[in-house]
Design a protein around this nucleic acid. Structure first.
Length: 470
RNA sequence: GGCACCGUAGCCAAGUGGUAAGGCAGAGGACUGCAAAUCCUUUAUUCGUCGGUUCGAUUCCGACCGGUGCCUCCA
């Protein structure tokens, strides 16, 4: 197997990667802020991380993944206040929705989904550590800030020259009493509305709540140790979120916070970043309503490299729906064939080599999808010309299973079992009899009625097959 | 204003200093009672534009045009 390589935002280069301990990758992925169901832009990033996770496992490593759930922040407090409920009451249902959406998209579960509000003690301890190290200060408003000029190398990840970050209008609008406009809050003193919705905790600095960046550092270190193998998220998190995480983590421990930083690019809609503020978001619920399967969305997302912007369009989704249909048909065929040929076996070997090679090269999923289609063509050809070797078929099934185990784009289709299946089989039997007496009008009528119910049929020398196409 | 990225067939999208993967859509053919599925053939002498480097550039450099993002909460 070729060396596994991954783009590292820290260096701006694709570098060889292996977990520090040689066996388990400690992966931290920034998760959703749970005040609203995550949109497809968010899920593009989570899908990229799912791919990363699966490729790491394909490489034979274990993965210990953490995805945080930010359940306390300004927006959450604002909304909870509007509704007169606690932040917990607001966020619980959103967390449930997040996991339902995640499962629909077949994103594998991380090992840990820590909620910020359950790690308050760890966050306070981290702030105390930073204070002891002289890089945090308490301001007149009672909040505690990180002094970025005390941390050498601030801005290294995002390559932003700190002196060039404008300290003008928008930054100055901040209500907080920072010494330097670029300093960020570690601990925010509580306001009455924070108390009202149960978003305040006791601390050495009085009642308050954690700053946003703090939670990731505290939870990552609590669950994965002080140096992560990989820290991933969307590109918009690079600055200031990840920059601040690095500053506060490294200022506390004196150790590198993450060996690799990986960032997924945006999903665009109508040529603009999908974001709530732009008002162009769509959700998993919208997708389901439009009849776009998880398989189709996964195909769509993995058709473009994760470090390239991807534009969501009806036409592109439609193409993915068709592409996934072909993959599904092939999958069905592989399941019902009984033997293969040397050509099939050869195609299987090629697929395995190609897919592992390109996926190991900075997660080149588009090429892996290409390799999969080349395999499908070659395998169909081999299967058409018949073979007599069950082992060759076994190799093809295994190769297909392995590659699909990473991309996971074979659609779910109910073609057996249940009342529907019994009914369809009865219809097909009636049609077969009609065809036998050459009553094609009756046969076509049955086919048409099945189509109206979303059942497509295919006649073959060995009988008639059916599949659900919705 | 600062910093990045992107611009490849009708659409989506890989890619390499040596002559353009794959998918969708389209066209023709085989198979089929007709379909569907599958297979075969076919669709960019050309990779935003103009220069430069080179024996040779889509791939490197420069300028320009167009698009997107980050610099503020943000996947």
């Amino acid at each position: 197997m070729p060396e596994f390589r991954l783009y590292n935002s820290l260096t701006g280069e694709v570098e060889p990667f292996a977990p520090a301990d040689g066996s388990t990758v400690r992966l931290y992925t920034c998760g959703p802020t749970v005040y609203n169901p995550a949109h497809l832009g968010n899920f593009r990033t989570f899908l990229f991380e799912d791919l990363l996770r699966r490729v790491l496992r394909m490489r034979g490593w274990g993965v210990e993944q953490v995805m945080n759930l930010t359940d306390v922040d300004d927006k959450i407090i604002k909304r909870a206040t509007e509704r007169g409920i606690t932040i917990r009451a607001l966020t619980d249902p959103v967390v449930t929705t997040f996991h339902a959406d995640r499962e629909y998209l077949r994103i594998q579960a991380a090992e840990h989904y820590p909620r910020a509000t359950e790690y308050i003690a760890e966050m306070i301890a981290l702030v105390e550590r930073l204070q002891a190290n002289g890089v945090a200060y308490r301001a007149d408003d009672g909040s505690v800030y990180f002094a970025i000029d005390k941390f050498e190398g601030y801005g290294r990840l995002s390559r932003l020259d700190t002196r060039k970050i404008r300290t003008g209008a928008r930054v100055a609008q901040d209500d907080y009493a920072k010494e330097n406009a670029q300093d960020f809050a570690l601990w925010k003193s509580a306001k009455p509305e924070d108390e009202a919705c149960a978003a305040a905790w006791d601390s050495p600095w009085g009642r308050g709540r954690p700053g946003w960046h703090l939670e990731c550092s505290a939870m990552a270190m609590a669950l994965l140790g002080e140096t992560l193998d990989i820290h991933a998220g969307g590109v918009d998190l690079m600055f200031p979120h990840h920059e601040d995480e690095i500053a506060q983590s490294e200022a506390a421990t004196g150790k590198p916070f993450a060996r690799f930083w990986c960032h997924g690019e945006f999903l665009l809609t109508d040529g603009a970043k999908m974001a709530k503020r732009v008002g162009n978001v769509s959700t998993v619920a919208d997708l389901r309503e439009q009849g776009v399967s998880a398989a189709a969305l996964r195909h769509f997302v993995f058709s473009t490299h994760y470090r390239k912007q991807l534009n969501l369009s009806a036409a592109a989704l439609e193409a993915s729906i068709e592409a996934v249909r072909r993959i599904g048909d092939f999958s069905d065929r592989l399941a019902r064939e009984t033997a293969g040929s040397p050509a099939l076996s050869e195609a299987a070997d090629t697929l395995l080599v190609e897919a592992t090679t390109v996926l190991s090269d900075d997660l080149n999923a588009p090429r892996a999808v290409g390799a999969l289609f080349e395999f499908i063509s070659a395998a169909n050809r081999a299967l058409d010309s018949r073979g007599s070797d069950p082992a060759a078929l076994g190799r093809a099934r295994e190769a297909f299973r392995q590659v699909n185990g990473v991309l996971d784009i074979v659609p779910d289709r109910g073609t057996s079992g249940g009342e529907l299946a019994d009914w369809v089989e009865a219809q097909l039997e009636a049609r077969t009899q009609a065809r036998a007496r050459r009553d094609f009008a009756a046969a076509d009528a049955i086919r048409k009625s099945l189509e109206e119910k979303g059942i497509a049929i295919e006649d073959s020398p060995s009988g008639t097959r059916w599949k659900s196409v919705r």
